[in-house]
Nucleic acid binder design. Structure first.
Length: 790
DNA sequence: GGATTGGGCTTGCTC
DNA sequence: AGCCCAATCC
């Protein structure tokens, strides 16, 4: 992805070239149509103002998209520079670029194949000066945003009103995704409400601080681009004129701001806006690809109506349905179809394949999250000893917290793995420190990163000194960074003043050299600031690891420069700000991939494990109270299932550790939706029904499926359904009354006989530690363990 | 000014 | 169980 970022103007001049659109040139070459099924072929060939490709999972949409682009170029209907393709991740962008390249060679360079965010950054940098930003703006990540809002809340004393950084930032983000700005939001808000009033003021503060810091947050990147286009029609017109073919992948996950951006870009170009135009131009041709069954980003503002209403929205739109799946076995697809069929408000679509049933889905129920993880590890050993590569295997989970047990067991089993996303490299404190040095250099207006490093390593610049500097800056209307430079004018101790002067000189030295090699800048900053020395001298073994991480970052910057000759500091910072979790995937890694179900979208693996298929986890507890929540959770499960090519494993546990507590877990309702004959249960899920006291709370209200986890402790059998194991439910167990003490002999349904070593915990959470004669030591939650006293 | 400690909160997903 | 923050102590 060497040329994805930066300010290079490569290809932009070609806007001035005459458009090759007109009477169609040559026919699309046959090699671009080879091996395509009829709807795929049509999706490649169709020409018109708007095209919707409804692409079921694994139906070859990337192939269709790349061939469509290649076709446009090969027939000379478009120059590369007239193509804008929006993908969901940088990795997908790089892949698409490569594939188009391999189809038609050199002619492919000059296209914009980018994510929404990266395309918008590029536009904003180019036009920054036009609307009052400096080109060197930096991007605040969610951590930065929280830190800033936290400070603002404190300053206003708004915390007493119950406003939290997380809450406020989520609300601002949501509003920006809906394309509101402070003023438009204010007009719709009820300002009688003091909470809304306080929020509004915070938002105003926040935007002002961002602007002062010459920074944007993630959501700004999209919405500000839209505002820019609306405020400056002649700027918008340039891009409209340039991009004649716009293609958007994962369209089901676009939000209002992204939709508006697409709308803006596909408007006709008029001579009123661009006087040197010979005649008005129609809007760009728009192709969107998506699958409403895979819409899983509502929490980020994704609006499923963008895709469901597409044909009504864009005049002359044509829709093409791709249902043949080239990825998975029929068993996996049947399970996926059955599950998603339970979402009622969808356009019917059934995936099929002609490649055979394949292996049955494997199901497993562990006694604990650890036990479940052990199953995953055992199966991976089994699969790899059968010749499968580690890199063809993935383990999915709903929440990042589930990685702990998995990692522990994988390490013990010596299985190489990589956690994709989660606690990211760039979130480590020492990496953030190092990055803050770089940001301070690149964007001197930003006080946030300066504050972070001002006293790291220790220079004796404490809160009091910082406050004095800030006061001086406010008094003179200058930035904090400028105040550093004028430290002589502030009454401070000679030692502190000298330290500040040194720091200011170091930062200024590199700020004056914006085109320097980022790796060199970083290395010098870390060494001359004393940062590396401090870590090196520390007796703390953790600091040795931190030092390694920082050195790793230096290596990353060096590698960046190697891949992007001439790439400057701003380019590097932009790239790192916009990396997505899925970008971390490295096929050559030879490692099992661990990731959330969300991160898994768009990927595929020979063998897939979906873990924690339990109520309250999948579907997640919080989704129960959200409109459309349970349906979205089902789509998430569907996305997970359809990632698998050959083997699918579904696992759950009977107890789940959470917040350091162990709680009983209930099998997910989604399991019941899979036809029983598709699943080979190694260990059947048992239905543990909640105690009467819990019955009324937290029950799901998603259609008629309540029976499965009903709160009634009714001794009658559960209503029989087509359920997977409704008719094979083992005994309803409740050992609450069972009293165990060390020395007791017990018998366990699966582990055989053993002796109780210790009992801990109280009430429903009592745990017995048992030495079993055959299988060794186990911890059991007494309430639900299948045991009897001998 | 800086280190240590204890309490409260968290874990829902992400560009 | 871990992280963050405030209070407390040096």
């Amino acid at each position: 992805m060497s040329d994805l970022w930066g300010l290079g103007d490569e290809g932009f001049d070609s806007v001035q070239r005459p458009s090759p659109i007109g009477p169609r040139g040559d026919a699309v070459p046959e090699h671009l149509l080879e091996g395509l099924n009829p709807p795929q072929r049509e999706a490649v060939l169709h020409r018109g103002p708007a095209l919707l490709i409804v692409a079921g999972a694994g139906s070859g949409k990337t192939r269709v998209l790349t061939h469509r682009i290649a076709g446009l170029l090969a027939t000379r209907e478009a120059w590369p520079s007239q193509i804008l393709a929006i993908t969901f991740t940088n990795k997908a962008a790089a892949e698409m670029r490569e594939r188009v390249h391999s189809l038609i060679g050199e002619e492919a360079s000059g296209m914009w194949i980018r994510t929404f965010h990266s395309a918008c950054v590029r536009i904003l940098r180019r036009e920054a000066e036009e609307f009052g930003f400096k080109q060197s703006f930096t991007i605040y990540d969610s951590g930065d945003v929280r830190a800033l809002i936290k400070r603002l809340i404190k300053e206003r004393g708004a915390d007493i009103q119950g406003l939290t950084p997380g809450g406020v930032s989520a609300r601002i983000s949501k509003a920006k995704n809906e394309l509101h700005d402070v003023d438009s939001w204010a007009r719709t808000a009820n300002l009688e409400n003091p909470l809304d009033q306080a929020f509004l003021e915070l938002w105003r503060d926040y935007d002002r601080e961002l602007r002062r810091a010459n920074a944007f947050d993630f959501d700004d990147l999209i919405s500000q681009t839209v505002f820019l286009f609306r405020a400056f029609p002649h700027v918008a017109a340039q891009y409209r004129k340039r991009f004649r073919h716009i293609l958007v992948d994962e369209y089901q996950d676009t939000n209002a701001a992204q939709y508006a951006l697409i709308r803006e870009l596909t408007q006709p170009v008029t001579r009123a806006d661009l006087p040197d135009l010979r005649s008005d131009l129609p809007g760009a041709s728009l192709t969107v690809v998506g699958d409403s069954d895979q819409s899983i980003y509502a929490f980020r503002g994704a609006d499923i109506r963008n895709i469901t209403d597409f044909e009504r929205d864009f005049a002359g739109a044509r829709a093409i349905l791709l249902e043949q799946n080239y990825r998975s076995t029929q068993n996996i697809l049947s399970a996926a179809n059955a599950v998603i069929g339970n979402n009622f408000d969808r356009r019917e679509k059934r995936l099929w394949t002609d490649s055979g049933d394949g292996a049955k889905i494997v199901g497993f129920t562990g006694y604990s999250g650890h036990d479940e993880a052990q199953f995953v590890a055992d199966e991976i050993v089994e699969l790899t000893s059968g010749g499968m590569a580690y890199s063809d295997i993935a383990v999915f989970y709903r929440t990042n917290a589930q990685t702990r047990a998995l990692e522990e067991v994988l390490i013990r089993t010596a299985i190489p793995y990589k956690v994709i996303g989660g606690t990211k490299f760039y979130e480590r404190a020492e990496i953030k420190d190092a990055m803050a040095y770089l940001i301070t250099v690149a964007n001197p207006a930003d006080p946030l990163s300066l504050r972070r490093i001002m006293n790291v390593p220790k220079r004796g610049i404490g809160p009091a000194t910082e406050a004095a500097l800030q006061a001086f800056a406010d008094e003179h209307g200058i930035t904090l960074r400028d105040a550093l430079r004028r430290v002589d004018e502030i009454a401070l101790g000679p030692k502190v003043a000298a330290a500040i002067k040194d720091l200011a000189a170091l930062l200024d030295h590199w700020s004056e050299r914006p085109e320097a090699d980022p790796g060199e800048v970083l290395r010098d900053l870390l060494s001359r600031s004393g940062y590396t020395d401090q870590l090196r001298r520390s007796p703390d073994p953790q600091d040795a690891a931190r030092l390694e991480n920082v050195e790793e970052l230096v290596a990353v910057t060096r590698e960046y420069r190697r891949q992007n000759p001439g790439g400057n500091l701003i380019d590097f910072l932009t790239e790192t700000a916009l990396v997505a979790a899925a970008d971390e995937l490295d096929d050559s890694g030879g490692q099992v991939s661990l990731m959330t179900l969300h991160t898994a979208k768009g990927l595929e693996f020979d063998a897939v494990f979906i873990t924690g298929v339990e109520e309250d986890l999948l579907p997640h507890r919080i989704s129960a109270n959200e409109p459309g929540g349970p349906a979205e959770e089902r789509r998430l499960f569907y996305v997970g299932i359809t990632r698998a090519r050959q083997r699918l494993h579904l696992s759950l546990a009977m107890t789940r550790a959470q917040f350091g507590e162990v709680n009983p877990a209930v099998p997910s309702r989604f399991l019941e939706e899979i036809p029983a004959e598709l699943v080979d249960w190694r260990t059947l899920p048992t239905t543990m029904r909640p105690a009467p006291a819990q019955r009324a709370v937290g029950r799901w209200s998603d259609g008629p499926r309540e029976s499965f986890v009903t709160g009634f402790r009714d001794p009658k059998p559960l209503p029989k359904g087509k359920g997977t194991f409704a008719n094979t439910i083992t005994e309803v167990r409740d050992n609450s009354a069972l009293e165990l003490s060390p020395g007791d002999r017990i018998r366990h349904k699966d582990f055989g006989e053993g002796r109780v070593q210790a009992v801990s915990g109280a009430g429903a959470k009592r745990i017995a530690e048992v030495q079993f004669d055959q299988v060794g030591r186990k911890r059991l939650l007494i309430k639900i363990a299948p045991i009897e006293l001998l």
